[in-house]
Structures are given as C-alpha cells and as structure tokens.
Design a binder for these strands. Sequence first.
DNA 1: AATAGGTGCAACCGCCGGGAA
DNA 2: GTTCCCGGCGGTTGCACCTAT
Length: 330
Amino acid sequence: MGRTPCCDKDGVKKGPWTPEEDQKLIDYIQKHGPCNWRTLPKKAGLRRCGKSCRLRWANYLRPDIKRGRFTPEEEDTIIHLHSILGNKWSAIAAKLSGRTDNEIKNYWNTHIRKKLLRMGIDPVTHGPRLDLLDLPSILSSLQNINPSSLLNMPSMLNLQALLNPELLRLATSLTQPSLGNPIMGNNTLMQNQIQPLTQNITPYFDSAKAEPSFEQNPPRNYGVGVNGRVKTEQSFENCFGSNNVTLCPSSTSSNTSAFLSNNSNQSLSNGSNSSFSSVFSTPCSSSIDRLDSSLANLISSACSEDDIETYFGHIVKKFETPTSLDVCSS
DNA sequence: AATAGGTGCAACCGCCGGGAA
DNA sequence: GTTCCCGGCGGTTGCACCTAT
C-alpha cells in the first residue's frame, strides 16, 4: 500500500511564494510555532502543501538564516566536512550556523564542485580526477617494486617524525597481504614485522598547524592545496619539519603519477602538471638512505600531503576492492 | 539590440526512518 | 507485527538573471 500524499493535490498552489504567503506563514509560526506541517497550511490560510510550508520556512523565512556570500572560512569548512561526510548536507549545515542544507548543497554544486574540478580534484572522492590519470601505468609501476626492498619498512617507520602519516599509512597498506595486495602477496614475515611497529605511531603532522592562511605566510608559493589555498614554506615545515627536507617550488615538476610511471630513481622535477611537488635535498636524512631506492623515491616523490594522500589513497583503495577473481577464489 | 548558452538558486519530488496507532 | 503518518533528506527541475557573441 502506497503512502497517501502529504497533501491534497487539488487546489494546492505550487511555484514561487508571494510576499503575502510568506507573511501568512511567518505570522502563523510566530504565533503558534512550527508544529504539525500537515495541518498548518489550512490553519494559516495558505493553499500550500505542508511540505512546501516547511521547506519555505526552513530554507528562507527562518529568522536565524544567514544571508550573503559564503566566506572563505565557510568554504573551507564545507570542503573539509564534505571530505568526511560526503553529501550529508544537513550534517554539514549543522556545523555552519545560519546556513541551510539547501543553500550549502546549491553552493557546492554551483561553486565548489566546479572549482575542484578545475583544480583537477574529484569532488566526490576529494582525490585527483581519475579521468586525468594514467592509472594502469601507476599500478603496473607499483607492481615492479622489488618486494624484498620492503623489508626495510621498519627503517621507514623510523621516519615518522619527519613524514606525513598518510605515507606511513600507505607503507603499511602496501604490506597488508589481506588486502589482496599484488606486491606483498602472502608475506606473513612482512606482516609480522610491520604490524607491531605500526601500533604506536604518533605522527608529527599537525593538521591544526598545516596550511596556515596565505596572508600569514605569503612569501613562497608551493602550489595549491585541496581547499584552494596556497601552500607555503611554513605549512610544509609544519607537516614535515625543516631539518632534512628542502622543498622545491616548481610549476612544471613531476607529479606522483608521472614519477611512478617512470618507476624511477630519478629526481622528480620534470614534466608534469602537478600543482606541487618537492624533492628531498642532498644529503638526504640517513634514515632515507637506508631505504631501498625504489621505496625511498616513492616517498620523496610526494612530499605534498595532498598529493600523496590522494594518489595513494586511490591506489590502496584499488587494492582493497575485491575483483571478480578474488570473489571466485574465496 | 537580439539571442543563445551559462549560472544561481528557490522549490519540488520521491524516498526513507522513526514513531504512533 | 503491520500500517500509516510525519518530518527530514538528497537529487533534480524550472526559471530568472547574467554574459558572451
């Protein structure tokens, strides 16, 4: 049995609200409060559906609604929350006082979404646009890594004071045989070595300190982060520390994809469309020297927390996604 | 000046979950 | 346990306005 309509369709007005209708609704709610939307229109003298009244009140007439353009801070908040919550507009609206879910949804679809697309960022995953990536070459180059090199992983974990925790997550993900990881297979030795070491990781990265406003640290431009803000020297020092790392601003430097497709031992400053890349300077930290060159290059190729997180997030996710073969074999 | 295409946003639609009967 | 109602949510539509040609 289907639901009965929320209102009698006959005689119910649709379309834009007139100022008179608005006033009737406001008057009624101010007098009686917003209760029982189904019966409200009749009592208020409106030829409208109760749902329409609720929407009009919630999205337009409510006195606590903030009008006007979204501030950069609000935009940052929306992007951040969307990366966590997805299209949960009401949940996002709950964190932004005075903004409605409808308003945020509209703003996302008309402004932020397009802005992210222009920046090469997938507005759904908040990772790089997969339609711009040569994913097969990325995956094939990863598969070319010598598995024995990953035995140095504990050394890499010693870098936790320097490196982005997302890199750490990547490294540990690469060693998870349970994820159908094509590199490690069922290497339980690796698992046994890595698992204990990853128990007590305390990343240096402090998201509260990352990416301070451009106004505070304008001098050097290291590219644009996911939220569109310009990364600065200070923001990277906040992420990685400044002792062993030199960041190289570059407009045409290699991105992770291009680097990985080379499966390289090379520096990364050639030919890419990445908004940011950086390389470790020489001398590298001694810890990095201890790593296998393939893995070291994997790490050094992607000092941008945004780049590495998004690129490898996709790759790891790819590993985690069961294929038809996986399903058959299990 | 005319008009086609793009943009922004209010409003609608269909579906869902929770709770009352 | 089932049915029904209500409020709420996310996706989509329609239209006014803007911009480029």
